[in-house]
Every structure is written in C-alpha cells, then in structure tokens.
Amino acid sequence: MTFKLIINGKTLKGETTTEAVDAATAEKVFKQYFNDNGIDGEWTYDDATKTFTITE
C-alpha cells in the first residue's frame, strides 16, 4: 500500500510517499524521516486516505 506524508513545517514543506505493508510500518518510516530532517510537530493520520500530516 502507498502512504502519503504531507509536511507543513516552518522550514520544510512538501509531500512524499512510501510503500508499506500497513500504517504502523509507514509511521516508523515517516518518523525516521522527521528525525533525519529535524522536523518536530503535531501529526495526524487519516486512514481513509492513508495520509499522515505533520505540522510544526
């Protein structure tokens, strides 16, 4: 399955996707992406659209 990440950061904005077997696996991938890029904020997940959103 394809999961999308929408980034609404102070310095970084955009979208990316990842292929994962489930939302929990995608969450781990995206959290690592947050850490690697110094993004910290509030994030949500919409199961209907398989979209994670992080807002700094």
Rank of each mutant, 00 (worst) to 15 (best):
T53K: 04
F3N: 01
T44N: 06
L5K: 01
T11L: 11
V21F: 11
N37P: 05
A20G: 03
T18K: 03
V21M: 11
E42W: 11
T11M: 10
I7N: 01
L5Q: 01
T18L: 14
G38S: 09
W43M: 12
N8C: 13
D46A: 03
T51Q: 02
D40R: 13
I7S: 02
T25W: 06
Q32T: 10
Q32K: 13
F52P: 00
D22W: 02
T53F: 08
A23M: 10
M1A: 07
A20Q: 07
N35I: 15
G38V: 13
K4L: 08
N8I: 14
L5F: 09
T11Y: 14
K10S: 10
T53Y: 08
A26G: 01
Y33H: 05
F52R: 00
F34C: 15
K13E: 05
Y45I: 00
E19Y: 15
K4P: 01
D46Y: 02
G14A: 13
F3M: 01
D36M: 11
G14R: 11
L12D: 06
T55D: 05
E56Y: 12
T2P: 04
A26M: 02
T51V: 04
K4Q: 04
Y33V: 05
G9Y: 14
T25E: 14
I6S: 03
I39K: 04
K28L: 11
V29A: 07
T16N: 05
F30G: 00
T55Q: 06
A26I: 03
D47H: 08
K50C: 04
T17S: 11
I7K: 00
E15I: 12
T55R: 05
D40I: 14
K13D: 04
N8T: 07
T53Q: 04
T17N: 04
Q32P: 01
E19D: 08
M1W: 13
E42F: 11
Y33F: 13
Y33W: 15
K31D: 01
E56I: 15
A20W: 02
T25P: 00
T44A: 11
Y33S: 04
K4D: 02
T55M: 06
W43I: 09
E27R: 07
T44K: 08
W43Q: 01
N37T: 13
T51Y: 01
A48W: 07
K4F: 13
I39Q: 04
A26C: 02
E56S: 06
N8F: 12
G41I: 10
A48S: 11
V21T: 10
A24T: 08
T16L: 15
I7G: 02
E15G: 06
A48F: 09
I54H: 05
D46Q: 03
M1Y: 15
T18R: 04
N37C: 15
M1L: 12
L12K: 07
K28I: 10
F34P: 01
M1D: 08
L12E: 06
F52H: 00
A24S: 09
E27M: 13
A26Y: 01
T18W: 11
K13I: 11
E27G: 06
I54T: 03
G9W: 13
T51R: 02
Y33R: 07
T11H: 13
Y33N: 03
T55K: 04
Y33D: 03
E42S: 08
L5G: 02
Q32W: 05
V21I: 12
T25D: 07
K28Y: 09
D22Q: 01
I6V: 10
T17Q: 09
K31E: 03
T44M: 08
